[in-house]
């Protein structure tokens, strides 16, 4: 990180000190897209992000002010507490001018407002599942279904996990038949890469299905 910062002066060819803003500058800047990596606590989200990211996963945080009412507090006075919600993310440069960010969703399901912000504008999501704790994936599956954000399931195969078939996992998670379920090893760059390409192929194929509707609406 530090080396990058010190190198950044090499990109300072425009002589920014005291120069005037360029109105067209935004057009030259990279476009960013994002994919979410969701799933229960300890399922390997950050490991997955780290496996394919070109940078060591970074962490951003948001402050959440919660109004908590103590159950035992007979005075009935609200007490505001501040919680920090941390999100790990990584980056993949797709090409010059196009960056893909991978965001791990916060492990605690109660931070739904962060899920809303993360989902906004996302291409799609990977829900990582652990066969030892499949139920931990339910909240993420439910969330993306309700939100209408396309997702696939990546089954992270832990050595001591049960060897379910893809069909058994699909049944257990009560998934629609069209949602891909892929087996993966979140530690492996190649494996994580295949999960991501599966997701993007799924996004492309979903478009083919959705497209006639879109044009029908546009033409009416």
């Amino acid at each position: 990180m530090d080396s990058r910062r010190s190198n950044s002066s090499t990109g300072d060819a425009r002589g920014a000190w005291g120069s005037s803003p360029r109105a067209d500058a935004a057009a030259d800047m990279p476009l960013a897209v994002k994919i979410l990596i969701a799933g229960g606590f300890g399922v390997g989200k950050t490991t997955f992000v780290g496996a394919v990211s070109e940078i060591r996963p970074l962490q951003t945080e948001e402050l959440l002010t919660e109004r908590s009412v103590g159950v035992d507090d007979t005075s009935g006075v609200d007490r505001k507490t501040t919680t920090t919600v941390a999100m790990d993310f990584g980056r993949i440069t797709i090409r010059d001018g196009l960056i893909l960010y991978l965001f791990g969703t916060p492990g605690q399901d109660r931070f739904w407002f962060m899920w809303d912000e993360l989902s906004h504008g996302a291409l799609g999501a990977v829900v990582l599942a652990d066969t030892r704790r499949l139920a931990d994936s339910f909240p993420a599956v439910d969330y993306f279904e309700h939100r209408g954000l396309p997702f696939i399931i990546g089954v992270n195969r832990f050595d001591d996990g049960y060897d379910y078939t893809v069909e058994e996992i699909r049944d257990a998670l009560d998934l629609s038949p069209h949602i891909p379920v892929v087996l993966c090893d979140a530690r492996s760059r190649e494996s994580a890469k295949q999960v991501l390409t599966s997701l993007v192929r799924f996004l492309l194929s979903s478009r083919d299905v959705e497209h006639p509707d879109a044009s029908a609406v546009a033409g009416s």
Binding site: V33, I94, L98, K193
Partner: peptide, 26 residues
């Protein structure tokens, strides 16, 4: 500073952009 905003919703993402992402990942 200047700001480059991302795409607003996933429905507006073009097929071309998705193909670029796919090729980049591959």
């Amino acid at each position: 500073i200047v700001v480059r905003r991302p795409q607003q919703e996933h429905q507006t993402v073009t097929e071309e952009l998705l193909r670029e992402v796919l090729h980049g990942l591959e």
